[in-house]
């Protein structure tokens, strides 16, 4: 009678051991949110500065170029300052969470703008210029695994986010995005983003240096974003204020 429990447990021992062996493997596997958080960290540090060139290519072959200096701090603070062309020089945008202000030198004061308003013409909008971390703006709704990629379906956390949902293809090996399809709430494809040209930015940051955008809404138009001097930098919180952000050029 005394060994009867052991006898009863013996058949369960093997499956239990197998289950225990599987636990670490499950813990090691990343869930969608973890993948997205890692994608964010692989793309950029939490607080950083960077230079970007935006190139709008038009169907007739002409192009317009914009150069921006950007500072980001934490989850929701960001400033973007136009350095070129001359007609846009000094124009700056500040984002604090869902609040966005635009400073135009000739107007001489910051104006609160609606977050969906475009700062410059062309295919780019605020979402492209003042993008925070993906994980701040989106939650993972679905994760699919393919041979070399993860396929994440992301849903906007609030209606303030420009694109209602994203389908993000993430390279498994480096956990870097390769393609992002941006959709409206109606399901309509608004634009597709394609990352390329993996580059070592220093400080352990190896990520794409080029982002290409096209949109079925602007047939024949393309936009290229080139990234440079992306590095860790943390500045004072006061820079991200109405009185401080127009002077961000002084911090370069």
């Amino acid at each position: 009678m005394n060994d009867s429990p052991n006898r009863l447990l013996r058949p369960l021992l093997l499956p239990l051991c197998a289950l225990l062996l599987m636990v670490p493997a499950t813990a090691l596997a990343l869930d969608g949110e973890q993948i997205l958080a890692q994608v964010d960290r692989n793309l950029q540090p939490r607080s950083y500065e960077m230079y970007r060139k935006l190139i709008n290519l038009e169907p007739d072959g002409s192009r317009r170029e914009f150069v921006l200096y950007t500072l980001k701090k934490g989850e929701d603070k960001m400033v973007a300052l136009f350095l070129a062309p001359a007609s846009e020089k000094g124009r700056a945008t500040l984002r604090l969470g869902e609040n966005i202000w635009l400073y135009i030198p000739k107007v001489g004061r910051p104006i609160r703008i609606t977050s969906l308003q475009s700062v410059i013409g062309g295919v780019f909008n605020n979402a492209d210029i003042l993008r925070l971390d993906f994980s701040s703006e989106y939650r993972v709704e679905q994760l699919r695994e393919e041979d070399a990629h993860y396929l994440l379906t992301l849903k906007a956390r609030t209606t303030a986010v420009a694109y209602d949902s994203l389908i993000m293809e993430v390279e498994k090996k480096r956990l870097l995005p390769t393609t992002i399809a941006c959709h409206a709430a109606s399901g309509m494809l608004i634009k597709t983003l394609r990352y390329s040209e993996i580059k070592d930015f220093g400080g352990g940051l190896v990520r794409p240096a080029r982002l290409e955008t096209d949109s079925p809404l602007h047939k024949g138009y393309r936009s290229i974003m080139l990234f440079a001097r992306l590095r860790n930098r943390s500045v004072s919180d006061e820079v991200f204020s109405l009185n401080g952000f127009a002077k961000v050029d002084e911090l370069r």
């Binding site: 230079y51 060139k53 190139i55 150069v67 200096y69 350095l83 070129a84 001359a86 020089k89 000094g90 080029r210 290229i224 080139l226 440079a228 001097r229 050029d249 370069r252």
Partner: peptide, 17 residues
């Protein structure tokens, strides 16, 4: 042929426009 040399936009003490 897209190139970007941020050095061209290096901060200078004097800015004009």
């Amino acid at each position: 042929d897209f190139s970007f040399e941020p050095e061209e936009f290096a901060k200078s003490p004097l800015t004009t426009g």
